[in-house]
Design a protein around this nucleic acid. Structure first.
Lengths: 338, 338
DNA sequence: TCTGGCACTCGTGCCCGGTGAGTGCCAGGC
DNA sequence: GCCTGGCACTCACCGGGCACGAGTGCCAGA
C-alpha cells in the first residue's frame, strides 16, 4: 500500500493540475504545498506513483498528470464533498423558486447546475414509471378523437392523441375516466398496466374497443423510449478547454446530442448516493476524456430521476460533487412542494 | 453596375470558397470554371469586386474570400433555392411521420434539419398567441388547487398549477370550464384576454375570487416570456469548422444557450418567405461570423412559428435554403393533420 | 478589352540552436 | 533505511533565418 505521504503527493498533484491545467513537477509541488520534504524525495514518490499507474508524464522532461486511476483514488479516498457556501445555497433557492411548471423547474435546474459547476449539465425529467399517478384525464376533442392527459405527483404532464375506433359519447368517456382514476390515482405508474388489465371487460361490448385503444395508448407512454426525457445545458463550457482538447470536443457534443447515450450514462449511475465515472470508466468512446458526476433526486426518499454534469476528467471533483448534491436536494424539495 | 462576367466571377468565388474553405485565387478559378478568359482578366475583375467591397483578401499574396456584402449579393441575385432530391424528400416524410406528440414533432424536426443541413438547427414551438384554442381544461387536484391545461389546434399543451383563494366545488369548476370554453374554443389565443375580460362578473360573489385567479393564470401563460419555447440541435456541427474558427465557436454556443437571443433572432425574420441574415447583419455580436436562415411555418397559410439554421457565413446557401423550406412545409403538413 | 509576362509581396514550412523545466541517479548524511 | 543535495541528461518550446511558392498588381502589346 502507498504510504501516507505518497497519497498526499497524489492529492497535491491532482489539486495543482486541476488548478493550473499544466503538468506539475516536483519542485513546484514542494513550493506550493507543505509536504515537509525536498523535491528529490517527491521525485522518488512520483516515480513510485507512476509505477503504480496513478500518474503519468505526457513526455519526458515534463511534469506529471493524474491518470484515470489516479483520479479514482483521489475521489474515493482523498477528497471529500465540498459543501456549498451559504450565498451559493441562497442563490440556488432563489433561482429555483418561482418556476411555473415542471419544464421550468427542469430548465432552471439545468442552467443553475451549468453555472455553478461551469460544466455541461444534464437533468432527467422525473421518470413516469417511478412517479405516482395524480390524475388521468380524457378530453373529447372530436367525436372519435380523445386526448389522454397523464399527470404525476411530480408535476409532469404527458399527453397523447387517441383515435378511437368509433365515436364516443361524453357519458361513456366520463365513465371510463372515473373508473380509470379510481383504480390508478395514488398508485405508481409502474403498477398501472396490471391495475387496468381487466378494465375493458367491465364495459359494454360497444365501448370496449375505445377503452382498449385508450388503455393501449396509456401503456405506450410508459414504454422506456418515450417516458425518458432530459434536458442539457452549458455546452458552451466545453470550450473552456479548447486548448487542451480542441478536437475532443466534437465526440462529446455528439454524445450529448444522443439522448440514448445520455440516458444510458445516467442509468448506469447508482440510484442512491453519488456516482462518479471517470474517463475510460464511461463505456461510450466519445466520453473517454470526460467524467460524469450523477446523483438521483426525488420528492421523497426514493429517486424519481437523475441529474448530473459532464466535464473533463480534470475537474474539481469535491466542488462539482457538492454542487450536484446540493442542487439535487433543492430540486427534490421543489418537487415535493408542487 | 457590375458586368455579367464579374457577377459570374463572384459566384465562382463563393462556390469555390464554400467548397474548399480556402481563399481562392485567379488561376484556380479559371481552371475550375469555364469563364472563357485568362487569369489576368479575372484578376482585374477581382480587383474591381474588391473595390466594391464584395470580396477581400485575408492578407496580401492570398486568394480572395467573399465578404458579408458579397454573400448578400450572391444570395439575392446569383443563387436560387436548391430543391431537395426525391430521396431526401422521402426521408423527411418518413422521419417526421410517427411522431407521437408535439414535443416529438419538434424534436424530430430539429434532428432532421441538423442532419440535412449539417448545421445547428433551431425550431420554435408554435406560438400560443398565434394558435387557436382547441380546449381549456380545469382539473381539481386538491380542494383549493386546480390544474389549468391549455390545448391548441397545433397540438401544443401547456399546463399551470392554480392555487385558489378558497376551496372550489366540482360543480362551480364545471360551470367555469363550460363557460370558458364556450367563449374561447376556436378563437385565437391572442384574442382570449378580451374574450374573458368580463367573465368574473357573471359569477356568484363567492366564486369570483377563484375565477379571477384562474383567468389571471391563463393570461400569464400568454405573456411572451413563457409562451415562446424552442429547441435546438446539431451543435456538434459547429466543430466542423474548428480549424477556421476555433475560438469563435464559444460565443456562438453561448448565444445558442440564451433563449432570448435566439427568439430575437427568429423574431427578426420575416413572417412569410425566407429570411437570410448574413454575418454582421445579425445584431448579436457573438453571431457576426454566422448566418441565419429562417422561415415561418404553420398548419395553414399563416405562420405560427419559425424554424431555421445557424451556420458559418461560409455556408451552402442554396442547399440550406432548400432544406429549410422543405422541412418547414412538411412540418406544417404534420401539424395540420394532428 | 483581353492577354502574357514579370517583378514583388508575404504567409508557410522547415531547420536549427539556445533555454529551461523537469527528471533519474548517486553519494553522502541523519 | 530514508532523506537530501548535486549533477548530468532529456526534450519540448521558442525565436530567428531562410527558401518556397501562391497570388497579386502593373504594363506593354495584340
Amino acid at each position: 500500500m502507498l504510504s501516507e505521504r505518497r497519497l498526499e503527493v497524489l492529492r497535491a498533484i491532482v489539486q495543482d493540475y486541476v488548478g493550473t491545467e499544466e503538468p506539475v513537477g516536483s519542485k513546484a509541488l514542494t513550493e506550493r504545498h507543505r509536504l515537509g520534504v525536498s523535491p528529490a524525495t517527491v521525485r522518488n514518490d512520483m516515480a513510485a506513483l507512476e509505477d503504480e499507474g496513478f500518474i503519468a508524464q505526457p513526455h519526458t522532461s515534463a511534469g506529471r498528470i493524474p491518470t484515470d486511476k489516479g483520479y479514482r483514488l483521489f475521489v474515493d479516498k482523498l477528497a471529500g464533498v465540498k459543501p456549498l457556501s451559504s450565498p451559493e445555497r441562497r442563490a440556488i433557492q432563489n433561482f429555483l423558486d418561482g418556476a411555473v411548471d415542471l419544464d421550468d423547474v427542469v430548465g432552471r435546474t439545468v442552467r443553475l447546475l451549468a453555472q455553478l459547476t461551469r460544466q455541461v449539465a444534464v437533468v432527467q425529467y422525473p421518470s413516469l414509471t417511478r412517479s405516482t399517478v395524480r390524475h388521468v384525464e380524457l378530453l373529447p376533442l372530436a367525436p372519435a378523437r380523445v386526448m389522454l392527459v397523464l399527470i404525476t405527483d411530480t408535476g409532469r404532464v404527458e399527453q397523447r392523441m387517441v383515435d378511437c375506433p368509433a365515436p364516443v359519447t361524453e357519458d361513456s368517456l366520463a365513465d371510463l375516466r372515473a373508473r380509470l382514476n379510481s383504480r390508478v390515482v395514488g398508485r405508481r405508474f409502474a403498477d398501472v398496466p396490471q391495475l387496468v388489465q381487466d378494465l375493458p371487460e367491465s364495459f359494454e361490448q360497444e365501448d370496449r374497443g375505445t377503452v382498449s385503444t385508450v388503455l393501449a395508448t396509456l401503456l405506450e407512454t410508459l414504454v422506456e423510449e418515450t417516458e425518458e426525457r432530459l434536458m442539457i445545458g452549458g455546452t458552451a463550457n466545453l470550450t473552456r478547454f479548447v486548448h487542451d482538447f480542441p478536437l475532443t470536443i466534437r465526440p462529446v457534443l455528439e454524445a450529448l446530442e444522443e439522448q440514448v447515450v445520455l440516458l444510458k450514462l445516467l442509468g448506469e449511475a447508482k440510484d442512491s448516493g453519488m456516482t462518479v465515472r471517470i474517463g475510460h470508466e464511461n463505456a461510450h468512446e466519445g466520453l473517454t476524456a470526460t467524467s460524469v458526476v450523477a446523483v438521483g433526486y426525488g420528492s421523497g426518499d426514493e429517486a424519481v430521476a437523475k441529474l448530473g454534469v459532464v466535464g473533463p476528467t480534470r475537474m474539481d471533483y469535491p466542488g462539482t460533487m457538492g454542487a450536484v448534491r446540493a442542487v439535487a436536494r433543492y430540486v427534490g424539495q421543489i418537487l415535493a412542494e408542487s
